[in-house]
């Protein structure tokens, strides 16, 4: 055993401790989801003594009808965000035109507007556009708001690419949109996946906006559907957490297939200020 190995072991141990602590909420969610109410009250931090699958049956009944809504709304939002932000990010990064910096900062400064402040004005706009109780009531504001950070990330990535790639295409006579499709998109594929996942997770877990704009039960997203388990008169955490787990199954499936790209996207993104 020399110093080198001790150092390596120390590094591994530290990381494992950090990972265990980081994963703890996930673990807590899992064990709580199979506890009965009695056990949750008496023993909410320990392992379940009796596994109660009924929590999942109950949660499945509540969640089932809403998963489709969440899938539709989040997917459409993600497609629109990825398309709009990749194009706009590319334009701002690779072309010079009058007002470029002004317009770019005009977009980025929207990150600084507190959400609660705009809740009622945004609601009234959505209502005046006749979008209430339609899926667009969520999709359009999510797309609009989601673009902002996505544009920033993609702009950051596109700026870091070497100019020769684009120059060669220009010499060949390719137009703005052709270069976008043939060069910008393929090169930034992992970053686009990152953006997609971030917005999929973000919109999937949003509660307050769909709660306010969608009252038709058949259009509700999954997170709002789960909330029926948690009310003042009726508190039962087992099914609630089982519901959260079921609701995150699509996210987990998505992750299994795209995790590699997500990490790669952030790792290759050169995202900085």
């Amino acid at each position: 055993m020399n110093r080198f190995y001790i150092g390596e072991i120390f590094k591994h141990l530290s990381i494992i401790v950090l990972i265990l602590l980081t994963l703890y909420p996930f673990f807590f969610l899992l064990i709580s989801s199979v506890k009965s109410h009695e056990e949750f009250t008496h023993n909410f931090l320990g392992l379940p003594q009796l596994i109660r699958w009924a929590n999942y049956t109950a949660a499945w009944k509540a969640v089932r009808q809403y998963i489709y809504n969440s899938l539709i709304m989040s997917s459409l939002t993600v497609v629109m965000v990825v398309f709009l932000s990749s194009y706009v990010g590319y334009i701002f990064a690779r072309y010079k035109f009058p007002g470029r910096e002004f317009l770019f900062y005009a977009i980025i400064s929207l990150l600084m507007i507190p959400g609660a402040l705009t809740l009622i004005p945004t609601f009234i706009i959505v209502k005046n556009l006749g979008l209430l109780n339609t899926r667009w009531a969520c999709i359009l504001p999510w797309t609009s708001g989601g673009q902002i950070f996505a544009i920033f990330v993609i702009h950051s990535f596109m700026s870091s690419l070497p100019e020769e790639l684009f120059e060669a295409a220009r010499v060949d006579g390719a137009g703005i949109f052709q270069i976008y499709v043939k060069i910008a998109v393929p090169l930034s594929y992992p970053t686009l996946v990152t953006i997609a996942i971030m917005h999929f997770v973000g919109t999937w877990n949003d509660i307050i906006w769909p709660l306010v704009t969608i009252t038709k039960p058949e259009l509700r997203p999954v997170t709002v559907g789960i909330m029926a388990f948690n009310s003042a008169y009726y508190q039962n955490y087992g099914p609630l957490f089982a519901g959260y787990i079921l609701a995150s199954v699509p996210l987990i499936i998505l992750f299994i297939f795209t995790m590699r790209f997500y990490i790669q996207g952030l790792l290759s993104g050169a995202i900085k200020m």
Binding site: I120, F123, V224, M227
Partner: peptide, 23 residues
């Protein structure tokens, strides 16, 4: 019958009321 939305109920009803969209 609209289902219970107890968490954030006040925000929910007030926003809809002001927007003219309450039940």
């Amino acid at each position: 019958f609209l289902e219970a939305v107890e968490t954030d109920f006040f925000t929910w009803i007030q926003t809809r009321l002001i927007g003219g969209e309450a039940p």
